[in-house]
Design a protein around this nucleic acid. Structure first.
Lengths: 337, 337
DNA sequence: TTGTAGGCGTTATCAA
DNA sequence: TTGATAACGCCTACAA
């Protein structure tokens, strides 16, 4: 098998202590010795055994993220960008990232959290797609395992993480649409237990309230944050006697589905109907027509979260325990440009 | 910290041996004892320490995958589907998946492979986006670390993994387009060192050769598998004195970029110009117009790869060491329907 | 500046 | 059916 520290020591007629310290750049080792050790270790292809190191140090240098998506594939680029951010920041800090998918609130999900958190497989966890009442955050808190989240749950006592201001994002969007002359503005949300749904829906309500328009409850529908869900919800909206002239969606995926439905109804998006999303995924600039959306810097948020988590893990001071991000309205042709 | 097996043993006045075996379902432990142990362990919130187990068993029950994408985010849904497949299958088999991103052939990438492979952090690796001459496969082979790949490199002695028949996929696509009356058919590829580029380009050539059309070398361009790359390459093609009437792209991302360029040129995709991709990502059904593509079951391929890798790791017999997949042509409106 | 030795939490061998 | 004990490979307090 691989050479161990013992093999290196034997080869050089040194003790494993010296080798260990030479490699870890302790300063109580002779310069010549260190150089020799490093060279030999390299030549022998030595790399410290992670399990042994972890056991000894009582830490894994690994953090975990369980993608909250139904089995069968997460197809929301939101997650790709998020994972990319997590991966890049963990790597940059010489940590590793453990990843898998599990359906929210499934037994699998619980088993995974247990295996990783209680088994000491990870030093901390990143959590997102937060529910108003989220067992994951509760569980991690009880366990005392460091964790950060994108969005907070209402049951959370001590929140460390990032929050995007969904509320103002959406209410600003509504204001913009009203300004464009729209009044029959529909909302396609997600399940109301989701923190982001609550915030975004409130933003919608607030935006509508500021106008004199009495919102039609039929214009508020719910889907599941997927293209298919957005498609079906939009179908319903377009089948109304008085269909909406604008549709604001909880995320870009939903909006893409809605655009598809509009096209099928022979509507030209951006002229006959306005459609807008939330997230600012890379796709949104490449849809036809390009999608108006509320951009949140997902990649950066993910990196930020990791940085915060590692600070938490290593007991380093944290400049801010709660970072608030203001997403930006990006106007494109899907709302008439 | 967490209770250890010792704590459980102490609580029950049993030896750690017995506890260990009760939990691992050995059959030489009294039924009553086993039940008691399991119950107590659960009550105490005991979960075996993974590092200790790994050190002792000399295996990690973890496999690794390094996303071969430039830092700053992989935005190709191909990878999301791939990761979802990897994650679901590893979870299903009670393994864990270590993931990160690294630019192909960067020093970071090498450092990661070393840390994981030589440090015994993983029992095996999944590799994709294969180069004709791929140092990763060579490295893993030399190390003797189990690995599987999607696509094979030409320098590979012993290939275990999955191959999609890119060649026939593309040549079939060309045949279809020619049949539709196209003759000025362009190809937007990737870097020629990529295995898939070689195969797909060959498919293009073969498809063209079957017709009497003499292919114009100006119609063959290269990009980088991204939307932006596809956009720029298509811009060039459309600026030609005699622009192509059809563009076949190495993947769907490139095709999405190309469609964007066509729209900007005032062309109606599917009527004024045909554009086709490769991969069959979920997006492709939701572009406007929907994209003709060559569909390969990425999610299933990923699961298959993991299954093969775990068989390799556990020295189980492998029905097939090399699985060949025939991708399917999906005709949609982007080529005139 | 270097070496000795103990222990991190498991699993597995052997003996009782 | 159960228990004592020795590793797995590394780090580090302490001794030399």
């Amino acid at each position: 098998m691989h050479p161990t520290i013992r093999d290196v020591a034997k080869r050089l007629n040194l003790s494993i202590t010296t080798v260990s310290r030479a490699l870890d750049n302790y300063d109580d080792v002779a310069e010549d010795t260190r150089k020799l050790v490093i060279k030999t270790a390299q030549k022998m292809g030595y790399a410290p055994n992670r399990a042994a190191r972890q056991l000894r140090r009582q830490r894994t240098d690994t953090i975990g993220y369980i993608i909250p998506a139904a089995s069968g594939g997460f197809s929301d680029p939101f997650f790709s960008e998020f994972i990319a951010g997590l991966g890049d920041e963990t790597s940059a800090q010489n940590y590793d990232l453990l990843v898998t998918t599990a359906s929210p609130a499934s037994p699998d999900e619980k088993a995974l959290y247990q295996r990783w958190a209680q088994g000491g497989k990870v030093d901390g966890m990143v959590v997102n797609r937060i529910y108003l009442n989220d067992w994951r955050l509760q569980y991690l808190a009880e366990l005392g395992l460091p964790h950060v989240s994108l969005e907070r749950s209402s049951s959370q006592l001590e929140f460390v993480g990032v929050e995007a201001d969904s509320y103002h994002g959406i209410s600003g969007m509504i204001a913009y649409l009203v300004n464009q002359g729209h009044s029959r503005i529909a909302y396609i949300g997600g399940t109301p237990e989701l923190k982001i749904d609550k915030d975004r829906y409130k933003g919608y309500q607030a935006g509508m309230r500021k106008t004199k328009i009495i919102p039609n409850p039929k214009l508020v529908t719910r889907a599941d944050l997927t293209r298919e869900g957005g498609y079906r919800a939009a179908e319903q909206l377009l089948a109304l006697v008085k269909p909406p002239t604008a549709i604001v969606c909880i995320n870009d995926m939903t909006a893409i589905g809605a655009m598809h439905a509009a096209h099928e109804h022979g509507l030209k998006v951006g002229r006959d109907i306005a459609i807008a999303g939330f997230d600012g995924i890379a796709d949104s600039a490449y849809t036809q027509p390009p999608l108006t959306t509320i951009d949140q810097p997902v990649y950066e948020i993910a990196r930020q979260l990791v940085a915060m988590l590692l600070a938490l893990i290593n007991n380093e001071p944290l400049a801010e325990r709660q970072v608030k991000i203001e997403p930006k309205l990006i106007i494109r042709e899907s709302t008439g440009g």
